[in-house]
C-alpha cells in the first residue's frame, strides 16, 4: 500500500503556568492511500494534538512542535511555506471537528460558508459553487437543501450541523480526512446515521484518520488502529488482530473494561490507578504502575516501540530479546 501520510517521531509540548506539559512524545504513525486508521486513547493522551499538528493547527505559544517530521506525499508539513499550507488545508486534507457549533461560523449562513470554501480553492463562478454546495447538502441527507443554504448553523440540529461539516469536508474531494471525535457529541441513533454517511461518502482512494475514544466506533470504521497512552503510541495493529491479540497490556485492559451489551453483567473490569501527569512523566514505562504484567525492567528503562510488519508495541514483552519470562 502506498503511504499517503507519515508522522515520524513527533514531539509537541505546551508551556503552561505549572510548567512544561508534554502532549505528544515521539509519536510515529502512517496512513496508506485509501486506508482508514483509527487513533484511540483516553482524554489527554495526545490524540487530538497529534492530528492538529498535521495541519499546523497547534496554537503557538503556548504550544511548540519540538521535533518530528510529517510527510504528506513528499513534503514535510512542518516546514512548507504558509501559502502552500493554506492550499492543502481544506483542499487536500480536511477536518471534521467534534463540535460543529464551534467549527462553523455562527454569523454566516450555511450556504455562504460552503460557497466560500469552494471558491477559496477553485476558480469557479459563484453560481457553480452554489449548485455544488446544494448538491452536497442533498448528498449528506439534508432535506430541502436549497432552503437550508439560507439557514444559520444555530437553526439546525446537532446531527444536521455535523452533516454540513461532513459536506464541507468532502465536497472538495480531499485525499485525507481527519475526523476528530466526529460523533461524540451526538446521540447514538444520530451517530449511526453519521457513521453510515461517512462510510458511504468516502471514496475508495480517500484516506481517513478517525480519532475516537470509542472502541465500538473503531471496530466499525477502521482497518488499522493506533493506540495512544500518556502522549505516546503504545500499539499499532490491524483491526481484528488488535482485538483478538492485543500486544500491549494497556490495550488489553482497555478492551476488557468496555461495558458490553452481551455476556455477564455486574462488576466491570477496571484499570486501577490513574494516568500519570503530563507535567511530570515518570521514567521507565508510563503504564507500569497500572500494569499487572510489569517487572523490574519496566521501571528502569522506557520501552521502545518494537516494530515489525506495520505492527508495533511499546512493551518489553514484545522485545524479541526479552528472555526472562515476567511474573
Amino acid at each position: 500500500m502506498d503511504t499517503l501520510l507519515e508522522i515520524e517521531d513527533l514531539t509537541v509540548r505546551f508551556d503552561t503556568d505549572e510548567g512544561t506539559l508534554t502532549a505528544v512524545e515521539g509519536v510515529s504513525l502512517s496512513i496508506g492511500k485509501g486506508e482508514t486508521l483509527g487513533l484511540v486513547g483516553e482524554s489527554g493522551c495526545g490524540k487530538s494534538v497529534t492530528a492538529m499538528s498535521i495541519l499546523r493547527l497547534i496554537p503557538s505559544p503556548p504550544g511548540r512542535i519540538e521535533s518530528g517530521r510529517i510527510h504528506f506525499h513528499d513534503r514535510d508539513m512542518l516546514t512548507i511555506p504558509d501559502q502552500d499550507l493554506r492550499e492543502i488545508r481544506g483542499k487536500s486534507i480536511s477536518i471534521i471537528f467534534q463540535e460543529p457549533m464551534t467549527a462553523l461560523s455562527p454569523l454566516k449562513r450555511v450556504g455562504h460558508q460552503l460557497i466560500e470554501a469552494i471558491q477559496l480553492h477553485e476558480d469557479v463562478p459563484k453560481s457553480d459553487a452554489a449548485r455544488r454546495a446544494v448538491e452536497w447538502l442533498g448528498k449528506v441527507g439534508i432535506p430541502d437543501p436549497a432552503q437550508r443554504m439560507q439557514s444559520y448553523p444555530f437553526q439546525l440540529s446537532g446531527g444536521m450541523r455535523q452533516r454540513v461539516m461532513i459536506a464541507m469536508a468532502l465536497m472538495l474531494e480531499p485525499e485525507l480526512i481527519i475526523a476528530d471525535e466526529p460523533t461524540t457529541a451526538l446521540d447514538v441513533t444520530v451517530q449511526a446515521q453519521v457513521l453510515e454517511l461517512i462510510k458511504a461518502m468516502k471514496r475508495d482512494e480517500t484516506s481517513l484518520l478517525l480519532i475516537t475514544h470509542d472502541m465500538g466506533v473503531i471496530w466499525e470504521m477502521c482497518e488499522r488502529v493506533t493506540v495512544m497512552y500518556a502522549s505516546q503510541v503504545v500499539e499499532t495493529a490491524a483491526l481484528r488482530d488488535l482485538f483478538a491479540r492485543p500486544r500491549h497490556p494497556y490495550t488489553e485492559a482497555l478492551i476488557r473494561s468496555i461495558p458490553k451489551l452481551t455476556g455477564a453483567r455486574g462488576e466491570l473490569e477496571t484499570i486501577d490507578g490513574q494516568v500519570p501527569s503530563p507535567l511530570a512523566y515518570p521514567g521507565g514505562c508510563r503504564f507500569r504502575d497500572r500494569c499487572c504484567k510489569a517487572f523490574e525492567r519496566c521501571e528502569l528503562e522506557m520501552p521502545p516501540l518494537y516494530e515489525a510488519d506495520r505492527v508495533a508495541a511499546r512493551c518489553f514483552l514484545s522485545d524479541p530479546n526479552q528472555s526472562v519470562p515476567p511474573i
Binding site: 449511526a192 446515521q193 470509542d214 465500538g216 466506533v217 471496530w219 458490553k260 451489551l261
Partner: peptide, 17 residues
C-alpha cells in the same frame, strides 16, 4: 440498541432511523 457500535458485532443488521 442496534445503533450502538460494538466490538465484534457487524453493523450490517442495524436499524438506522
Amino acid at each position: 440498541v442496534s445503533a450502538i457500535p460494538q466490538v465484534g458485532v457487524e453493523g450490517k443488521g442495524r436499524i438506522v432511523l
